[in-house]
Each structure stands twice: as structure tokens, then as C-alpha cells.
Design a protein around this nucleic acid. Structure first.
Lengths: 120, 120
DNA sequence: CACTCATATGAATGAGTGTACATATGAATG
DNA sequence: CATTCATATGTACACTCATTCATATGAGTG
């Protein structure tokens, strides 16, 4: 169909990671694509915390937080340990910090640029 | 409710970015949380391309690609220019490269660790 | 200016998912 | 061992969103 891009596509196809890897990458970013989960991760960046502390911090149901922690845990982004009746959650991966940081930097710098435009 | 974390929460609340910023951050990552969009971005990382080339590369409808490009464009992650009848899309932001790269690194290193575990 | 090619867009559909509610598990306490 | 506190989990519902289909726009071409 359409016009010819075989030469270009051949090259790009060659250098492109597999579909499976790219899908897994999307699934990874999907974890960061929810405001509740991002807030949880940022909170844990400051300090490890028990479930009810996170719930109180975010002003959300314990159930909602617990479900999200389960999601984050099955992706190995957070870990937990029991201490008596409470369960303490913490960041399990130093990459979380880097990934969040890069996204954050992007946002900040984008806003700077927008301000420059507005000021012109 | 529950047990007391006021001292901890006070500290964490103080250092935490605003809800608005964290929500925007989640929205940013949401863009990377779809395999079609990730594939498009990776493709554009290799070379700028017209819409139908991307569609052919991903073996998807032109319409689907066009819709996703619109999404990426309104987030300023890609830009485009007309050349006659075709429209060429390209990455508009160097951060895209970094963010994708960090996610990629995480995946790769996670797989290395899993292999070590399996080999033990 | 009819026709074709490349892209964009609007509406509809279907799949995925975040949250609330109810309830279960599990640990301490007396 | 009954009770309470902290957390986990199953289900249902509402909502978001990616894709498809049909159609519109827009640029070349003869």
C-alpha cells in the first residue's frame, strides 16, 4: 500500500527491539501511569511506610492503597516486611528513583519552556 | 484513625511535590504506557517517518497510528511537518530518549537478576 | 476541477482497570 | 480464645481509552 519505504523500514526493523520487549516496556511505564501509584512511590522515596500511613497521607481507602501496593509489588517496584500487626512497604529498586526523576525533569523543563513562550 | 504517624506524615507531606505535579507526572508516564505508542517512539528514535511508514512498520491501521500520533503530539513528545501529501513525524524532545532508555535499562537489568536467580 | 493519495477526525465499541464495599486473614492483647 | 487492629482480597461497577469503521480534509496531478 501507499508509497515506498522498504529501504527505510528494513533499517528500522533491524534496529528495533522485539515486540515482546517493547510491550514489557509499555507495561512497566503503565505502572507509573497512575497518580495514586506515583504518589505512593514518591512517598516511599521519602521514607518507608506502613499501609495505613500511606492511606492517610493520600487520603484514600486502605483497600485502594492495598490493591495498588499489590500491583507495585508484583512488578518488584516495592518490597515489604511485617512488623507485628503492621506491614512496612519500601522501594525495592533504585531504578524507580531514576525513572521518576527523569519524568520529573521533563515536566519541570517543559514548564520552563512554556514560561519563556508566555513571557515573549 | 489507626495508629499514629503524624510525625512521619508531617515530614513526608512537607517534601512531597504537589498533587497536581504528581498527577501530571502520571499523565506523562501514561503516554509511555501503551505498546503502540512505545513502538512509535522507538521507531522515531531511529528515524523520522511518515504516518503510513509507521503504520506499515507496526502492521496497524493508518487511522490507529494517526490517533496515537495526535496523542503524542498534544503532549509535545513528537512534532511533524508536511512534505507534499505526506506528513513526517519526528521526536520533539530529547527527554523521550532518556525516559525510554531508563525504562529499558530497568527491564534489562531486572532480567539479568532473574537469570541469576534461575541459575542458582 | 474531477481524481487519487496521504492523513485526520468523529463516533461507536469493547477491553482493561481503579476504586468502593464487604469480608477474610493474620497478628497481638488481655 | 474472643476481640481488636492492620492488612489483604474478591466482586462489582464506573470509567477510561485504544482500535475500527466511515468519512472528511488537504495536497498533488492530469
Amino acid at each position: 500500500m501507499v508509497h515506498n519505504h522498504e529501504k527505510l523500514l528494513e533499517k528500522v526493523r533491524h534496529d528495533l527491539p522485539t515486540d515482546e520487549l517493547l510491550s514489557d516496556l509499555a507495561d512497566l511505564f503503565k505502572l507509573f501511569g497512575d497518580s495514586t501509584r506515583v504518589k505512593i512511590l514518591f512517598a516511599l522515596l521519602e521514607s518507608e511506610m506502613c499501609v495505613c500511613a500511606i492511606a492517610e497521607l493520600l487520603n484514600m481507602t486502605q483497600s485502594a492503597i492495598s490493591h495498588q501496593l499489590k500491583t507495585l509489588r508484583s512488578a518488584n517496584l516495592v518490597g515489604n516486611r511485617r512488623e507485628g500487626k503492621t506491614v512496612i512497604y519500601f522501594l525495592a529498586d533504585e531504578h524507580v528513583h531514576t525513572i521518576l526523576g527523569e519524568g520529573f525533569k521533563h515536566l519541570i523543563e517543559e514548564r520552563k519552556e512554556q514560561n519563556y513562550i508566555e513571557e515573549d
